[in-house]
């Protein structure tokens, strides 16, 4: 029986794995970090008790942080491996690259115009400006939160290499960047990827690695046209994933989304109880 190859391959398995690993570790860090941040409130204390009180919570937070940094280092190696060094500039500035280009500035304003009904939907290639922004936001976030996190990992050792009062600064920077990252993921990222009417209720493309061809013609017309022009469209088409896998992606994805919403709602509800500044 022939299977309908109606979907366009968008993410190879290794990139889906990066995203899966990143989100699992991110959620572990979020839960333990928020439990620690809200430790003076009954809600935060209750969260921390799930991990064996504050010592257990901090221990898990530290280990997960190291895992995330190790993942970042692996990602850097993967990136070096992916760059086509012989055709360096095309590799970096090509349409399949996530590097920001002039066209993304134009794409931003074109999209802005579409949102307010002034223009047609922009002619995005493989990556739209917000998809690139989401990718690089993890870089900037991970560098800020990772450097300060490493400093706070062992404060006594850190103060051998720099004045101890830098730990005051590191803790605040770590907190604010973490709140920014969680706030962005649990509101903007979830809405854009899953709750927009055209994506609702769930967009599994980062999990199954493919997007519907017709959807891609709307959302990324320049990409599909480029594949057609180069005669690569047929080779890029894949069948939909089997139903059990689709159920798994949905259940797993919504478990994570609900966990994020749980943290968001209770963090906002308890914000007034925070006793630190």
């Amino acid at each position: 029986m022939a299977v309908d190859r109606t979907r366009l391959k968008r993410f190879p398995p290794v990139q889906r794995l990066w995203h899966l690993g990143l989100l699992v570790v991110f959620m572990i860090l979020s839960v333990t970090g928020i439990a620690w941040m809200y430790f003076e409130t009954p809600w935060g204390r209750g969260l921390a008790e799930q991990f064996g009180g504050f010592t257990g919570t901090l221990e898990i937070h530290r280990i997960a942080g190291l895992v995330m940094l190790a993942g970042f280092v692996l990602h850097l190696l993967y990136m070096l491996f992916k760059i086509d060094w012989k055709r360096f500039s095309q590799s970096l500035m090509g349409p399949d690259s996530l590097v920001f280009q002039w066209i993304d500035i134009k794409g931003f304003f074109a999209h802005l115009g579409w949102v307010f009904g002034l223009r047609k939907y922009p002619h995005f290639d493989r990556w739209s400006w917000w998809e690139k922004f989401d990718y690089w936001a993890v870089w900037w976030g991970l560098i800020i939160v990772g450097v300060t996190g490493l400093m706070l990992y062992n404060p006594v050792l850190t103060s051998d290499f720099m004045p101890g009062w830098l730990l005051n600064v590191a803790l605040w920077v770590h907190r604010i960047e973490a709140v920014l990252a969680m706030g962005h993921i649990f509101t903007i990222h979830f809405t854009v990827e899953h709750w927009r009417p055209s994506a609702f209720p769930y967009n599994a493309s980062m999990f199954d690695g493919s997007v519907d061809l017709e959807e891609a013609r709307h959302e990324h017309p320049a990409w599909v046209e480029r594949l057609e022009r180069e005669g690569r469209l047929e080779g890029t088409l894949v069948p939909p994933p089997p139903v059990p896998l689709r159920i798994l992606y949905f259940v797993f994805g919504y478990a994570i989304i609900l966990l994020g919403l749980f943290l968001l709602v209770f963090a906002i509800a308890n914000a007034a109880l925070l006793t630190l500044f």
Binding site: V156, D160, P163, W165, N168
Partner: peptide, 17 residues
């Protein structure tokens, strides 16, 4: 804080807002 040094002790416990 086992092994605390003068540098470590320059952490500001009562930090300003």
């Amino acid at each position: 804080h086992e092994g605390a040094t003068p540098s470590f002790a320059s952490y500001m416990v009562h930090e300003p807002n």
